[in-house]
Design a binder for these strands. Structure first.
Lengths: 241, 241
DNA sequence: TCTCGTTTTTGACAGGGATCAAGGCATAAG
DNA sequence: CTTATGCCTTGATCCCTGTCAAAAACGAGA
């Protein structure tokens, strides 16, 4: 389903395995914990590997687990009764997923690429967090940032045209993802998923991208590759069609 | 601009004025503080009264204040360079507004009705919160809830039809606002503001409401009044047009 | 290199909602 | 009670996007 890096070794508990080598330890919510506390937290959790396409949590389910993303990209989504889907967030390495301090999972979480998580039972995590203000503070900061970003996205969904939506999306990916030597970004999303983020259809996304390619603003290479040739023009398109 | 209750006495510091009589003290984020701490917090803040239409914070401004809403309804909004506006949230009594632990105000805050706030300088509030875990926990809970609700709203903006949007909106107002003896809800929003919440136009909102009135699902009384005659039918409309 | 299945692009068409423009009603003022 | 002033509603028209359908391109595997 995705053209990704080879999956990591296996699923095993964090306990007995140090966080020292963790690549996201300085960026995840555990960054402010001292070594002892971080060890204590790691003993609650375990490493889990996911394959692209796997769903970790379903909308409406009981909230039983939360997790740090160690590696990979995942989507958060909700859908209507008749199957229309809206992606409400995309999370990357070091991000936090799940609903702490609440009983219901508000949206599904699905891996877009192969991914690794540091997974905690929610109850245990909540208990730990209640006694560790640094952790809650970090979580609060992150949640406030998420809320700001989410509200910004509402402007896109409610008020922007298809062209503005696609341009905004591409700039956003350009900011979040690293381009290769040729300046090409490898999108972790299919056209359908892009449409589900932007609240449009796959055909509209495709047409807008083709137009932008024709006018030289971007370049499309293969299915998932994009080069942002003229960022300034793209920014203009993102603002007012 | 609005047909509301008479404005309260005046602007005066909370200091010297007890929180004992505060109508939202059991529901706002200060609910879990003990009496001493709550007094200390109240000494940081001051009461402010707003008239309908007044803006407290502007999008992009430095984040200098945060506040509890004591009474009234306010909107949070962002807009594009060319003036299209999207309302990203509506806040009621006991809700919290402003951006703690951050330097930038992400969206404007404007009173929809006359309102009263308990206003804090952000720096002082942040400092206080850093030493009071209960407060941060409460704020975290509230922010997580806001995020869940906001993401739900993305589904409406991105995937629902005009009819579904209006039906969902009316049900939401029915849940949040109390109807009078005749079952009539007094909307705190104009048609334009409703359109700005739903990501449509004033004409579309008007047409949808008129249709629903014609089919007997709702009843319109005056400019701001609505009676939800058939909630079940409304719920059906909210789900699939 | 060729084939097959999937994803993406392209085309034709239509419909929902935006836009433009009056007209009708509440609400407030005289 | 009468007159203004904005809202709100209604009407006519257009166009952006969604929908349906098919061709093309890509990438995986033989």
């Amino acid at each position: 389903m995705a053209q990704n890096v080879a999956p990591p070794p296996a699923t095993r508990p964090c306990s007995g395995q140090s966080c020292d080598a963790c690549v996201v330890r300085d960026h995840a919510i555990c960054a402010d914990l001292n070594d002892d506390d971080r060890d204590a937290l790691s003993r609650i959790g375990r490493r889990v590997t996911l394959q692209a396409g796997q769903t970790v949590m379903w909308e409406g389910d009981d909230s039983t687990v939360v997790a740090n993303v160690i590696e990979g990209t995942l989507k958060l989504a909700t859908s209507t009764g008749d199957g229309r889907e809206q992606i409400v967030g995309v999370v990357y390495a070091a991000d936090f997923i799940g609903r702490p301090f609440g009983t219901r999972t508000p949206h599904s979480v699905t891996a877009l690429t192969d991914a690794r998580l540091c997974l905690f039972p929610r109850g245990a995590f909540d208990g730990f967090a209640m006694h560790h203000g640094e952790l809650q503070h970090r979580l609060l900061q992150r949640t406030l940032d998420d809320l700001d970003r989410t509200r910004d996205w509402m402007l896109l969904l409610g008020r922007k045209t298809a062209r503005e939506k696609v341009a905004t999306f591409l700039l956003d990916m350009g900011r979040r993802l690293r381009a290769d030597a040729d300046g090409v970004i490898d999108l972790p999303l299919s056209r359908q998923q892009i449409a589900d983020i932007l609240g449009t259809t796959i055909e509209t996304v495709s047409r807008q991208m083709t137009d932008m390619k024709r006018t030289g603003v971007i370049d499309l290479v293969g299915r998932r590759g994009v080069r942002l040739v003229d960022r300034q023009a793209l920014e203009a398109l993102a603002e007012a069609g």
